[in-house]
Amino acid sequence: MTDTANEIDPYAALQDKEPGKPPRNQWLDVWDQFKKHKGAVFGGGFLVFITLAVLLGPYLWTVDAQKLDIRNKNVRPIWIAIWDGGAKTLWHRPFGTDNLGRDLLAQMIAGGRASMAVGWTAMLLSLSIGTGVGVAAGYFKRLDGLLMRLTDLFLSLPILPLLLVAVTLFRQPLRANFGPEGGMFILIVVVVGLTSWMQTARIVRGEVLALKEREFILAARSIGTTSGAIIRRHLLPNVISPIMVSATLGLAVAIITESALSFLGVGFPSDFPTWGKMLADAVPRMEEYPERVLLPGIAISLTVLGVNYLGDGLRDALDPRIRGR
């Protein structure tokens, strides 16, 4: 027994071993953790599905959402025929038509296009304002007090009343300049973006304040890296995870705000469908045609639910303390 023990190489601990496989990429770890969160996978999947549906839908379902077909008005969706044989249903109008005979499936696709476009653009706008303000406040000490005071002031503004006021007041001039749809799109995106950047700014500032004191920033500064380069190369990549999480929240907020404005009747013009507008138009006749309320309502709710779950999963996946548990 002693002989075999002596055969073991005494210097094993000191030998350099090649690692068996290359080190794993950080994003692969994130993806592994993300996959464990079932809700987040479903939510992300649904968001991708809805985005693709509204992008590719008009090419697959080529009916014009605005076309009036007064003979086929008030057609019920096709699934009503399962329990109510006498209902007026048509195979080439699977979701039915509204009180002017416009195809509801085409309207859902067009409305989703508007809602998602407003949501994504407003989210990107609020994200870039928030990140800009947050990085500037966290990195440059001179700007910190001023910018954070401004953030606090914006946080104490009554957002929904101000949104209503701004949209009602500036509707006419913007419509005159950019056309009814374009003007409204710019107005809603700008107004939602300008009133929802504060949380992002606060989170980013906190992260930047902590990162700024770390050694790698000191090292970068000691070799003469300029402030702009430090922010671009070293700070922004490290604050990407809180930004992504607040991006999902921002998308949900933007979609809901646009729908709320449309619902209250200050959104897009009446012949331009969005989900909130379709919902609002259907409410007076919801006793006879509940599906016209349900379809856009479910679409809004599921999209926002998916986005919220996606944010939840991203927060867990991007947090290295939770990851791997």
Binding site: G39, A252, I256, S259, A260, F263, G276, L279, A280, V283, M286, E287, P290, V293, L294, G297, I300, S301, V304, L305, N308, Y309, D312
Partner: peptide
């Protein structure tokens, strides 16, 4: 958690008409 998430995501302008359809109509 699921129910709070749903409550968080469904906007009041949808829950309102939905509850009216269910409980009043």
């Amino acid at each position: 958690t699921f129910i709070t998430m749903v409550g968080f995501s469904i906007p009041p302008f949808f829950t309102g008409p939905l509850l009216i359809v269910i409980f009043s109509v």
